[in-house]
């Protein structure tokens, strides 16, 4: 039944995350942040990860780079298979946390951009210094060449006066400019995977559109796959080929963009789409909100993780058993009892 695992890593699959379970050691005990997450990313395609705050979007993707804090435990049965540039397939969960191999992948083959462009640059070094650092770490070039590549990258991400910006500090740049510079850092080694962790959330709407446009252009140019994390469905509609909807540490529905938007199956996805405000939808119409609160990961509900807020909850089933991954269309899967059998 597990559709995700049918796709083989060879071929056009770049990354395959299987049964990912991540817990954190805290003072209150071990908290499971992510459990049973399965997804794959095809080369050159964009996967959108959507979900509320705390649904485990960032945790799942930071695990791909092994950037989680030391308190995080990745379950030993989890696997994150990544197709290296040389054709080798590595299971990232089995690598040493800061070893040679993961460091080659980080920045070299998989890059990450963050939500806050302000704090993702160190304030005591110039933007140019930090771009050059990325280039010099992964490419066999001289300092002079690295500088040329860096200026060229800044130019390519649409920063005017790249030579001057190169010498400036991040706090001397505007928010949109900083995110562009961050993208330049991420692209410096021509990665095959770019993880964008809410890259447009901290920007205002016009800048958001520009940055999205830029990312689409660069994807065509560089051919990298993107995992795009956001809680904004409007943004995801513009960029993703496939969408995975996350809720409380797990994926509840996954499918091609059109399917998710026009033929959503999971009650959570349906509710989420109803909650989008639309201009001209008719005045005085109330926004639909999803009932209840997202439960604390400390006491995760048994059975289906969404049953406490679900209007179609089947008593005795949803609150007891865990729904399996069910295929509901071409490449479209859902974890919901409404569609099992």
């Amino acid at each position: 039944m597990e559709i995700t695992t049918n796709a083989s890593i060879n071929g056009d699959i770049l990354l395959k995350v299987k049964d990912l379970k991540i817990s954190f050691k805290t003072d209150e005990g071990v908290i499971t942040a992510v459990d049973g997450v399965n997804f794959f990313v095809k080369r050159g395609q964009t996967l959108g990860l959507v979900g509320e705050s705390g649904s485990g979007k960032s945790v799942s993707t930071w695990a791909i780079m092994r950037l989680l804090p030391k308190t995080a435990i990745i379950d030993k049965d989890s696997s994150i298979e990544f197709l290296r540039r040389d054709g080798e397939i590595v299971d990232i969960t089995k690598l040493k946390p800061n070893g040679r191999e993961i460091r080659d992948i980080r920045g070299g083959e998989a890059a990450l951009i963050f939500q806050e462009p302000m704090s993702s640059f160190s304030p005591v070094y110039t933007v140019g210094n930090q771009i050059m650092e990325a280039i010099l770490t992964h490419r066999p070039v001289s300092k002079k060449e690295a500088q040329e590549i860096a200026v060229d990258l800044l130019d390519r991400v649409g920063i005017p006066n790249p030579r001057q910006r190169f010498k400036q500090y991040s706090f001397e740049l505007s928010g949109g400019m900083r995110q562009r510079a961050m993208i330049a850092v991420a692209l410096s080694s021509n990665p095959s995977l770019l993880i964008a962790d809410e890259p447009t959330t901290a920007l205002d709407v016009t800048i958001q559109a520009q940055v999205l446009e830029l990312m689409k252009e660069l994807q065509e140019e560089f051919g990298m796959a993107i995992i795009f994390i956001t809680h904004n469905l409007g943004v995801i509609a513009q960029i993703a080929n496939e969408i995975a909807v996350m809720y409380l540490g797990g994926i509840v529905e996954r499918g091609p963009r059109r399917e998710i938007f026009h033929n959503p199956k999971h009650p959570y996805t349906i509710n989420l789409l109803h909650a989008i405000p639309r201009i001209g939808k008719g005045q005085g119409q109330r926004l639909v909100a999803i009932e209840g609160q997202i439960p604390s990961p400390l006491d995760r509900p048994p059975g289906c993780r969404f049953h406490t807020r679900c209007q179609e909850m089947i008593p005795g089933r949803c609150n007891v058993d865990v729904p399996k991954i069910t295929q509901v269309g071409n490449n479209h899967t859902v974890n919901c009892f409404l569609y099992e059998n």
């Binding site: 780079m65 950037l67 800061n98 460091r103 080659d104 992948i105 980080r106 920045g107 070299g108 890059a111 990450l112 963050f114 704090s119 993702s120 640059f121 160190s122 304030p123 930090q130 650092e133 990325a134 770490t137 992964h138 961050m182 850092v185």
Partner: peptide, 9 residues
Amino acid sequence: SVTAARARG
């Protein structure tokens, strides 16, 4: 910014 640098390898 430290995590970002770590993410650069």
